[in-house]
Amino acid sequence: MWKTILRRVLILIPQLFVLSVLIFFLAQFMPGDALRGMIGPDTTPEQYAILRQIHRLDDPWYVQYGTWMEGILARGDFGRSVTHKRPVTDIIGERMMNTVRLSLLTTLFTYIIAIPLGIFAAKKKDRFIDKSIMFYTFLALSMPTVVFSIINLFIFGFRLRWFPVRGSVDAMAAAGTLEHAVSRLHHLVLPAVTFALLSTISIIYFLRNEIIDYDASDFVTTARSKGVPENKVYTGHILRNALLPVAGNAGLIIAGLFTGSIFIESVFAYPGMGQLFVTSIVGRDFPVVNTLIMFYAILTVVSYLVTDILITIIDPRIHIK
């Protein structure tokens, strides 16, 4: 297994390299540059030219790429954001924690919602409760993330005023206080629940199918015929086998959240990496965009890898390749 992991990591390196070169190459075709947002009406062309020189925007793309790569490899320096005028790693570091908090809470809510629904649906297969749960999965499957986010924001944020409508924390709360933590959580709940309600589908389907399959399997029939009580059949035999793989899928869910975070964070004006990505693209802030894409790529691969490893540990029948 270690060989497999090592190989997957080694494959990642040339892929990341190709990806980053591609992005730098394409960046030169992009209309406008990061300085457009900084210059005022009274900036002279000469000043503008000097600014471009300071930020080395006149170098050919491969020279810019070389400088950037050298910084990363030599000093772990991913460059400076042009619009924020700060090191990229600092900005992403701040935003990353927000996205991590959102992802963790979303994953938590996803499991809290999906596991009971999956179990109920399977236990009451083809009955009203199963059909209602399946209907819910259709609604979730058919709901574009932005639409659901906006509707929830409209109802629970603007109309009912239960939750804040933007940001990650109340600016009035001092860092480190309980109030600060509560405010953070308050800002997180609505986007996390919104997100979770949409990402439960795969777990519900998976769990429902697993339980139905186990329910009909020989070892469960044996247990029943020996007279094991029905609730013990469920907890001891069926659920134990069906739930473990679900836990292993956490990595896949987190990987799926990355794409969604672009939309969710934009609607809820939540300062995470997804929103940073959108604003950096609009602001032509390439060091940030580049680093973010690399970062997402690594996170995705690591999530898949962790999922595969977890699944092999949980289910000895499966070997990763």
Binding site: L19, F29, M30, P31, F277, I281, I293, Y296, T300
Partner: peptide, 21 residues
């Protein structure tokens, strides 16, 4: 296809779209 599986494809689309003059 492996290259695609590596990152959220929508991000790359967004990058491409913003690059076209």
């Amino acid at each position: 296809l492996d290259f695609y599986a590596m990152f959220p494809a929508l991000m790359l689309i967004i990058v491409f779209i913003s690059m076209i003059p």
